[in-house]
């Protein structure tokens, strides 16, 4: 009986290995609908997109979008907190059906997951004193502009700034913003997220001068979840046009969904 047993062991081991190494698990729309709930992964450490409210429940832009998505699907949302590094593995291993996790759409990621049309975005721009007339990079000549050292905005500003620009590099966004607010600089390179956070304190003292770059974020599903993705795209399209996303964006970032997200495919 020995050989038989060995064959059995090998078979069992290979079955196990196959199970472990199984390629990504596609999420079936029918399965979600029959279960009556959808597991949505989101970040809880990325304000204002994903945070935890005072009672420890996930909240933020992504949470509101996730709830709206579940409503659209006609199921209840089951929000699973994920982290930056593990969000894609969570999706590919089927522990969540969908990621509404501020996942920026990039070439590399698109090879692993399927993205919906963009539902959010982060833009980097030059902001400054409302009284200042600067509409393009050449206007930076002779001006001082604060940036966080080695950030995307540092790279962006350094690339376009003319020779005579006084680029002041601070250790982080907070110090750069402090320099702007205390009047030490008239301009800053910052993201719309950072600027929305200080808008409450500064009102219309500062406005956007010109864009540097932008990154759009998509809702992600495991490859092969075509029916689900189609449904999600339907949701994003509707939410963009009927003002749902505008409303949520207004709530968390102080302005309607920016045009670069609305116009992105």
């Amino acid at each position: 009986m020995k050989p038989n047993r060995r064959i059995f062991t090998v078979l069992a081991a290979s079955a196990l290995a196959a199970g472990l190494a199984a390629p990504s698990l596609a999420a079936e729309l029918e399965a979600i609908e029959s279960a009556g709930s959808v597991k949505i992964g989101m970040l809880v450490d990325f304000p204002p997109f994903g945070i935890q409210d005072t009672s420890g429940k996930p909240d933020g832009y992504d949470a509101d979008v996730a709830k709206a998505l579940a409503d659209y699907l006609g199921v209840t949302p089951e929000i699973v907190p994920v982290t930056g590094p593990n969000r894609i593995p969570y999706l590919l291993s089927g522990q969540v059906d969908v990621l509404v996790a501020s996942l920026g759409i990039t070439e590399e990621r698109a090879q692993k997951v399927d993205f919906s049309t963009p539902y959010a975005g982060i833009s980097i721009a030059v902001y400054g004193d409302s009284t200042l007339e600067v509409t393009e990079a050449s206007g930076l000549d002779g001006q001082s502009i604060a940036v966080a050292r080695a950030s995307t905005q540092d790279t962006g500003v350094s690339e376009v700034a003319p020779e005579g620009t006084d680029i002041r590099r601070f250790d982080d966004d907070a110090s750069a913003v402090q320099a702007l607010m205390s009047g030490q600089v008239k301009l800053i390179g910052a993201s719309n997220v950072v600027m929305s956070q200080i808008a409450g304190a500064t009102g219309d003292r500062f406005d956007k001068k010109f864009d540097l770059s932008s990154q759009v974020q998509g809702i992600a599903v495991a490859p092969g979840s075509d029916a689900l993705l189609e449904k999600i795209n339907g949701f994003v399209g509707e939410a963009r046009s009927d003002g749902t996303l505008d409303e949520i964006h207004e709530k968390w970032l102080g302005e309607p969904l920016p045009d670069f997200v609305k116009n992105a495919e």
Binding site: R149, A150, R168, R169, F170, D171, S175, A179
Partner: peptide
Amino acid sequence: SVISANDLASAGADLNA
């Protein structure tokens, strides 16, 4: 360099970035 003044440490930090 925390207030964006220029010195040896800020030159090093810029180069490091």
